[in-house]
Measured scan of single mutants.
Amino acid sequence: MQNSHSGVNQLGGVFVNGRPLPDSTRQKIVELAHSGARPCDISRILQVSNGCVSKILGRYYETGSIRPRAIGGSKPRVATPEVVSKIAQYKRECPSIFAWEIRDRLLSEGVCTNDNIPSVSSINRVLRNLASEKQQMGADGMYDKLRMLNGQTGSWGTRPGWYPGTSVPGQPTQDGCQQQEGGGENTNSISSNGEDSDEAQMRLQLKRKLQRNRTSFTQEQIEALEKEFERTHYPDVFARERLAAKIDLPEARIQVWFSNRRAKWRREEKLRNQRRQASNTPSHIPISSSFSTSVYQPIPQPTTPVSSFTSGSMLGRTDTALTNTYSALPPMPSFTMANNLPMQPPVPSQTSSYSCMLPTSPSVNGRSYDTYTPPHMQTHMNSQPMGTSGTTSTGLISPGVSVPVQVPGSEPDMSQYWPRLQ
């Protein structure tokens, strides 16, 4: 039975679970980093996980050691009161100082060594604690504590007292930064006198190289990059290397530039699409467009005044059976039934097929058609009795279509119309 579990990581490298990497692998990681390889490249070359490479390099940059820390136990506290007071002093002298600059000053002034120097995250935590204590304490208590930490007896009751030896409130920041720059020169002199001055200088240079600022491109470089971006948004590694040799930039910087440029292009394309949609959409909808001609068919113009009344309900007709019959029939052209047409008796099958359309009241044959006459024609229609054979009435077949029909004066039988409509 094995005491430890061995495995293979996602890159194909072998590791022992819970145990640190061998010293030979750690040394190779540092050597590759000094030669300029990126952590992701080191991870692929040595088949070590990216997190492990970053952790080893980060500890090497901070402490200069590649040895693993002790497994188990607690780390001794490195942010001692003396170190905290120095950090507060540096922050007062130059409020814009960075944590890694404070760390360098602690090393250069001999406050800490490589073994007990606090990390950048520890210094940031100390600065946050100082800021929170400043908010919790009152103004007087804060000034007393700062005077105690600074070891001075001057008056701290006013704002300019934060910067000793100065009279203009805006000047101390520059003086403090100048003092810090002077301390940086002392850093070089002190570290050069040490035993491991060369190694420390190499480590600091490598650290500065990794902690780079934003790349500033010249106009020629920007023009070359934009020209390549117009050709393709995704250049391959050969195109990037050719462009890197042409404009004297690292291939990694060119790759990052193209990634950022593609993101910018997507944002601009989104804005262009929004403007295009806004320009195509009308600002207001016309009133006429809300009524579609496919839904509402136009009603033909009436030929006679009587045809303006298109349904039985508008003429005072309360018989719903006839109203439904007229509205359900398709529109037909106007025609006239003459008196000489043969009077065919209704076929029983045809009569039964339209039995649902006729009223059940037996008085329908005896009703006159003056009910369908509009009010303004009552006088004219009353002067001509319906009993004469020459009287013409208008029957409504569908809305908007008038059918003048000659009705025999002897017997106005409704059943004569249905064979004609089939």
Rank of each mutant, 00 (worst) to 15 (best):
Q2H: 06
N3K: 07
N3I: 12
S4A: 11
H5E: 11
H5K: 07
H5Q: 14
H5P: 13
V8W: 04
N9S: 01
N9L: 02
N9E: 01
Q10A: 10
L11C: 06
L11T: 03
L11I: 05
G12L: 03
G13V: 02
G13T: 02
F15V: 04
F15M: 02
V16D: 13
G18E: 01
G18P: 00
R19Y: 06
P20Y: 00
L21P: 03
L21A: 06
P22W: 01
P22A: 06
P22F: 05
D23I: 06
D23P: 07
D23K: 07
D23E: 12
S24L: 14
T25P: 04
T25K: 08
T25S: 11
T25E: 08
T25C: 10
R26V: 01
Q27V: 12
Q27F: 09
K28G: 07
K28T: 09
K28D: 07
I29C: 04
I29A: 02
V30K: 14
V30R: 13
V30S: 05
E31N: 13
A33H: 00
A33T: 12
H34K: 12
H34R: 13
H34G: 15
S35M: 10
G36M: 04
G36K: 05
G36L: 04
R38K: 11
P39C: 06
P39Q: 00
C40K: 08
D41M: 09
I42G: 02
I42W: 02
I42L: 02
S43E: 01
R44P: 03
R44Y: 10
R44I: 06
I45S: 14
L46N: 01
Q47A: 15
Q47Y: 15
V48P: 05
N50S: 07
G51L: 03
G51I: 02
G51D: 02
V53G: 01
V53H: 01
V53Q: 01
V53K: 03
K55H: 13
I56W: 15
I56G: 00
L57I: 14
L57R: 00
L57P: 03
G58P: 04
G58V: 12
G58T: 05
Y61R: 04
E62L: 15
E62A: 06
E62N: 13
T63R: 03
T63P: 01
T63M: 03
G64A: 05
G64T: 00
S65W: 01
S65H: 11
I66L: 10
I66R: 04
I66V: 15
I66A: 06
I66D: 04
R67W: 09
P68L: 01
P68H: 05
P68A: 13
R69G: 13
R69C: 08
R69W: 09
A70R: 08
I71K: 06
I71Q: 06
I71A: 06
G72K: 00
G73L: 01
G73Y: 00
G73W: 01
S74R: 00
S74W: 04
P76H: 02
P76F: 02
P76A: 11
R77T: 08
R77D: 00
R77G: 02
R77K: 15
V78Q: 03
V78E: 01
A79K: 04
A79T: 05
T80L: 11
P81G: 15
P81L: 14
P81D: 07
V83T: 15
V84M: 07
V84L: 05
S85Q: 10
S85K: 09
K86L: 14
K86G: 14
K86V: 14
A88V: 15
Q89A: 13
Q89H: 13
Y90R: 07
Y90D: 04
Y90T: 12
K91T: 03
R92C: 09
E93W: 14
C94F: 12
C94P: 07
C94H: 15
P95I: 12
P95S: 15
P95N: 14
S96Q: 14
S96K: 15
S96L: 14
I97L: 12
I97T: 09
I97N: 07
F98A: 15
F98I: 09
A99V: 03
W100K: 08
W100P: 03
E101Y: 15
E101K: 12
E101S: 11
E101C: 08
I102E: 01
I102G: 01
R103V: 11
D104T: 13
D104P: 04
R105G: 14
R105M: 12
L106P: 01
L106V: 06
L107I: 11
L107W: 10
L107S: 10
L107E: 13
S108Q: 13
E109P: 07
G110A: 14
G110W: 10
V111E: 08
C112M: 05
T113A: 08
N114A: 11
D115N: 08
D115A: 07
N116M: 11
N116F: 13
I117Q: 06
I117Y: 10
I117E: 09
P118M: 14
P118L: 13
P118I: 15
P118F: 02
S119I: 01
S119P: 02
V120G: 10
V120S: 04
V120R: 01
S121Q: 04
S122C: 06
I123L: 05
N124G: 05
N124V: 03
R125M: 03
R125F: 00
V126S: 08
V126N: 07
V126M: 15
L127K: 04
L127F: 15
L127P: 02
L130A: 08
L130N: 11
A131I: 13
A131P: 08
S132H: 09
S132L: 11
E133R: 07
E133V: 13
E133A: 09
K134N: 10
K134F: 11
K134D: 10
Q135T: 11
Q136C: 12
G138R: 08
A139K: 12
D140H: 10
G141M: 12
G141I: 12
G141P: 07
M142G: 08
M142K: 10
M142Y: 08
Y143M: 12
D144H: 11
D144E: 09
D144Y: 10
K145N: 11
K145I: 06
L146Y: 07
R147A: 13
R147E: 11
M148T: 07
M148L: 08
L149Q: 05
L149S: 06
L149M: 10
N150T: 13
